[in-house]
Design a protein around this nucleic acid. Structure first.
Lengths: 140, 140
DNA sequence: CTTGCTCCTCTAGTCGCTAGAGGAAGTAGG
DNA sequence: CCTACTTCCTCTAGCGACTAGAGGAGCAAG
């Protein structure tokens, strides 16, 4: 029940001090109460909330989604469809990014495979970059 | 041989006008010569150079790498080892990102699989986020 | 001459932090 | 009580690669 300082919160939630202040400013954490000397004080609920935020960030959720997830987590009687929807959207987003990266990977690999390690003059990598027609890339 | 305006360059290279100015400021494109009325003018070489930049960006190379690639492309007699090295580093970077995303994907998918579509109270997604111990995540 | 398009410069915003300046408050030891 | 050290405060600026917008000037066609 004893309040802790921002540095202690930082250690307990494994989130850096400036990041905590940043989350407060962005409204993910409530405005912390202050000591007489104007220092932020926190309690157990803040540790839990900040850990939640960190886990969500580690999983790649963005701030807006986390804000929504936190709101929903506070309403335990509601159906969890919205939580689900956010996670599903995030999954789709990850899949998109993987697909795009896999495409890039294939192209860069193809360039490297064709490079005969001669001079820049006949380097296929440079040629492909200079003339888009030569590569697989076809996105708009 | 007739000079073209920035809008025409934009169309021919498929790069937006503000982005062209941005590249100039960053030194990827040489400072364009100007008309009497202070408008930038370009020639065929600029179109080629800007296309090169666009292709490299589409493949995910970052500005610094592209700057190096452009420098190298102008020295055709040098061995292409450095070009190769840049591409190889980029490939490794892509692989890293794919691996990390694949990890995230698995975790988010696992959360979704466990969600029984009930109320937020018993939603596994919220639980996993709230208690890191429950998830696969183990980094750092 | 007027309409409408293109162009100019400059500033600020995106995302999620991170780094640093410059100063005040708290704590431990002598 | 004094000093040294750590922690904390606010504020500003930077990252990467643009994008958006303000406010104004040039230019071509009718």
């Amino acid at each position: 029940m004893k309040p802790i300082a921002i540095g202690e919160l930082s250690r307990q939630a494994a989130v850096k001090v400036p990041t905590i202040r940043f989350y407060e400013e962005r409204g993910l954490l409530p405005r912390a109460s202050r000591t007489e000397g104007n220092r932020r004080t926190y309690g157990a609920a803040d540790v839990r909330r900040l850990r939640f935020i960190r886990h969500a960030r580690e999983l790649g959720f963005e701030i807006e989604d986390i804000r929504a997830l936190l709101d929903l987590a506070e309403q335990p009687e509601r159906p969890c469809g919205e939580v689900d929807a956010i996670a599903r959207r995030h999954l789709a987003d990850i899949d998109d990014r993987i697909a795009r990266l896999a495409g890039l990977r294939a192209e860069v690999q193809a360039m490297l495979d064709e490079c005969s390690r001669g001079r820049v003059r006949e380097c296929r990598i440079v040629e492909v970059l200079a003339d888009h027609g030569e590569c697989l890339h076809e996105e708009h």
